[in-house]
Design a protein around this nucleic acid. Structure first.
Lengths: 153, 153
DNA sequence: AGTGAAAGAATCACTTA
DNA sequence: TAAGTGATTCTTTCACT
């Protein structure tokens, strides 16, 4: 499905998608047209979901990362749909997973400070009734954060 | 520091950084040169950390997301440096935070399946002695995952 | 997979308000 | 201090080999 050249291209683009076709082509020993055709294919087939700018959260004043662990007793579909809709629409929520095991949901949230977090928390529990246990854990330090996925052999 | 036009540009680029200067310029009612100067400034000042391609994890066969919660008794600087170095170098680790509260570290990991996770887990605990409690939680469903930060007023 | 041409975009010195 | 014009250069894209 993906040969060595495709994987190399994906690796490079994950790090920097402003690289020009010529530079990419050289890196995989091709000329620009066949390289371009590969990129187009990788995009058309959905390997590349998009190209985005990553912003600096400190510069934006978003210094607080929180993880929210949620337990609920509501397990019917209507409640779930509503829960998903409400939380997806909150821009502070960067990641949100339904989990196996001890707690039902895990959410990663980014806000400016504790005051903003408190505001977010109140909006969350008000918007979604039926959350029986909401535990917040706060990050002291970001050691790693990357969008680079390991491209398998 | 950031005016309305800057914020609009950042919002747009977070969603799609392939938008051409002309399109961006039109969206903020400028011509391309002043728009370009703004983008350059936003980049030089560090608001834009980079432009990257986002890949599809399912397409790459990376279907399993795990969160690893770690407690340790080691709190000296040498041990910490080593721990950080080892884990930063593991490409399966997408995010990694030092936490306040009940557990000391939280790690987000992406792998193909349980077998790969088991391999990762063994490498982790072997590479880093002194982890006294390592709890893995697995995601059943990704409800939201975005790199888009809320750009404050 | 490569060549070469045409179209499109980014970059910058210079001008204007 | 911020925006615009226009020329130059670099990039992308595509029909054809």
């Amino acid at each position: 499905m993906l040969d060595k050249t495709d994987r190399k291209l994906l690796c490079l683009l994950q790090q920097d998608c402003t690289l020009s076709l010529q530079v990419l082509a050289e890196a995989v020993n091709l000329t620009s047209t066949p390289c371009w055709k590969r990129l187009k294919r990788l995009e058309d087939e959905g390997f590349i979901r998009g190209r985005v700018a990553l912003l600096d959260h400190e510069k934006l004043g978003l210094s607080l990362t929180a993880f929210v662990m949620i337990k609920t007793q509501q397990h019917n579909s209507d409640w779930y749909q509503r829960f998903v809709k409400q939380t997806k629409d909150m821009p502070e929520v960067l990641a949100f997973y339904r989990m196996a095991g001890e707690f039902d949901y895990l959410m990663q949230v980014r806000v400016a400070d504790m005051k903003s977090y408190d505001g977010f928390y109140k909006r969350l529990v008000n918007a979604v009734p039926g959350l029986i246990d909401v535990t917040s854990s706060f990050a002291m330090e970001e050691i790693k954060y990357t969008t680079i996925l390991p491209v398998p052999e």
